[in-house]
Structure formats: C-alpha cells, structure tokens
Simulated scan of single mutants.
Amino acid sequence: MSEENHSGTDIHVADEDSPVLTSYEPNFQRVFARGTLLRMDDDDQNIVQMAFWSSKDTDIEIEDEGMANAVGYRLESEIMMDWESIVNLRNLLDNYIEDHAPEEHVANIE
C-alpha cells in the first residue's frame, strides 16, 4: 500500500491488510548510527555521500596544510544517492516523523 504525502510523492507504508515484506540480502549489515555526515561526490555533483557514524573524536592534532585540529569519525556505513533518491528519502522521513515521532521531538522541529 502507498499513500501520497504533501509533496505528491508515493510513500510505501504497511498496514494490517497489506504488510511490507523485506528480506536480508547477502552481506547485509545492520549498524547503529549516532549521527550522519553528508557531502557531494567530488567527481559527480549529482551524487551525495551519506555516511553514518557511531562515535567521533574531537581536537585530533594533525600537521597538514596548517590545520591544527580535526574531528575524526568512526564510520559504520556509507550510502551513495542521487538527488531524486535524497528527495524521496526526505519525503519518507517527513511522513514517518509526522505519523510516529514523540511529541517532544516534533516540537523541536517546528
């Protein structure tokens, strides 16, 4: 089943009459992420790299190009997406937040 959200994008949702079934593909890994990083691919401006990290270290001393301190992230997973996929992900998250997020988190968004 799918429903249309405010942007006109179909959002696929499960309900009692139409459950969503998933299967784990070979080499599938589930990771716990505390945060995300985003950046555009250096070679293709239509591709965005989304990385999920579990921990970070601040004030790492480095001696490269005059930088004194850096931040290091333990990356757990990375996804490469084009802009259409990113917009679809945003619509999916907006819909899920609207339907399921606890009130204290929704209040922080507004």
Rank of each mutant, 00 (worst) to 15 (best):
N5E: 15
H6I: 10
S7P: 01
S7I: 02
G8V: 08
D10M: 09
D10Q: 10
I11T: 03
H12F: 15
V13W: 04
A14F: 09
D15N: 15
D15S: 06
E16A: 11
D17Y: 11
S18H: 14
P19C: 06
P19N: 10
L21V: 08
L21N: 06
S23M: 14
Y24R: 02
P26W: 00
P26S: 12
N27I: 03
N27A: 07
F28V: 04
F28W: 11
Q29R: 11
R30V: 02
R30H: 10
F32N: 04
A33R: 09
A33N: 06
G35E: 00
L37Y: 01
L38Q: 15
L38D: 11
R39Y: 11
M40K: 10
M40H: 14
D41R: 11
D41E: 09
D43S: 15
D44P: 00
Q45C: 05
Q45K: 12
Q45P: 14
I47F: 05
V48S: 05
Q49P: 01
Q49M: 14
Q49C: 14
M50S: 00
A51M: 03
F52W: 02
D57S: 04
T58S: 10
T58Y: 08
D59G: 08
I60Q: 14
I60V: 08
I62F: 08
I62D: 08
E63T: 06
E65R: 07
E65P: 03
G66V: 02
A68R: 13
A68K: 11
N69C: 10
A70M: 11
V71W: 05
V71H: 04
G72Y: 06
G72T: 14
R74K: 14
L75K: 02
I79F: 07
M80G: 15
M80E: 11
E84S: 10
E84F: 06
S85F: 00
V87N: 13
N88V: 03
N88Q: 15
N88C: 12
N88K: 10
N91A: 10
L92H: 10
L93S: 06
L93A: 06
D94C: 09
D94E: 12
N95W: 15
N95A: 11
I97N: 01
I97W: 02
E98T: 09
D99T: 08
A101K: 01
P102I: 11
E104N: 04
E104I: 02
E104M: 00
A107F: 00
N108A: 06
N108V: 02
E110H: 12
